[in-house]
Design a protein around this nucleic acid. Structure first.
Lengths: 133, 133
DNA sequence: AAACCATGTTAGGTTTTCTTACATATCGTT
DNA sequence: AACGATATGTAAGAAAACCTAACATGGTTT
């Protein structure tokens, strides 16, 4: 169902609410946006409006920051994850085309392994140390 | 579970957001608050903050207004409904005390009928025409 | 030591929301 | 038909929340 995704992406929350929900400062939230870790919507009057997805992302960012990962690293992680999701979505679609239940499970497991392989190699091809300098 | 109820009662939304979600004007929302159909929280700076429950209530109010019911009538309806919920909650608790699954269903049905009877009589004892003048 | 990163802080400006007051259209009542 | 009440619109002035831009600062890298 996509109604859920629509709801999760509706811009409903002001920055003040998000500050309380995430325990981040306005400065931090704006800084993360400046570095394109989030892209909150804007009102007609140019105020930021955040969705549930934005809030999830901010909590994830906070977690990664706490783990000592810097902004550049987080950005890369998000990009990799997104790419991974795309691959998975595409493979799911391919699998759905004409496969029965039983077979679908096997295929999915297969494709997931494939995605992991891609993932690891893409990390290796970049400079890993960039993530932790 | 009560975690859900906590979430639904968290004051998260500004009046601007609520206006868009409910298609009501600020004037209407404040007017309904003035007449105690809702009781949104306030920020330290005195701004209204609405919960999901508040929004549900506003949508319900809008619906009842559309049906031609006036503020006084809506207030009474809310009070009756709340009283009914209290009765039900109490009876559920009573039923839960030491009844097996099978018996619980019968009891609940019984108590619901009882609540309805209370409800109807309380409407009759008041002046019904008050609702629609 | 110099540069950089993530965040704090301040300043001036704009948007949003607040209360209060008055205006108005639609009623039911006299 | 005039009247009073109800529900909503609108305007004004003030306060809160948010905006961007700039500079400050404590830790890290280089």
């Amino acid at each position: 169902m996509s109604g859920k995704e629509i709801r999760r992406s509706m811009p409903l929350f002001s920055i003040g609410t998000v500050m309380k929900l995430t325990d981040l400062t306005a400065r931090q939230i704006r800084y993360y946006e400046e570095h394109q870790l989030i892209s909150p919507a804007r009102t007609d009057g140019n105020r930021r409006m955040f969705s549930l997805n934005d809030i999830d992302r901010l909590l994830e960012i906070k977690d990664l920051i706490d783990q000592g990962i810097n902004i550049a690293g987080i950005k890369q992680l998000f990009m990799v994850k997104e790419q991974q999701n795309e691959v998975i979505a595409q493979e799911v679609k391919k699998a759905k085309r004409e496969v029965t239940d039983e077979q679908l499970r096997k295929l999915l497991r297969n494709e997931l392994l494939h995605a992991n392989r891609l993932n690891r190699s893409s990390l290796r091809q970049g400079d890993l140390s960039r993530f932790f300098h």
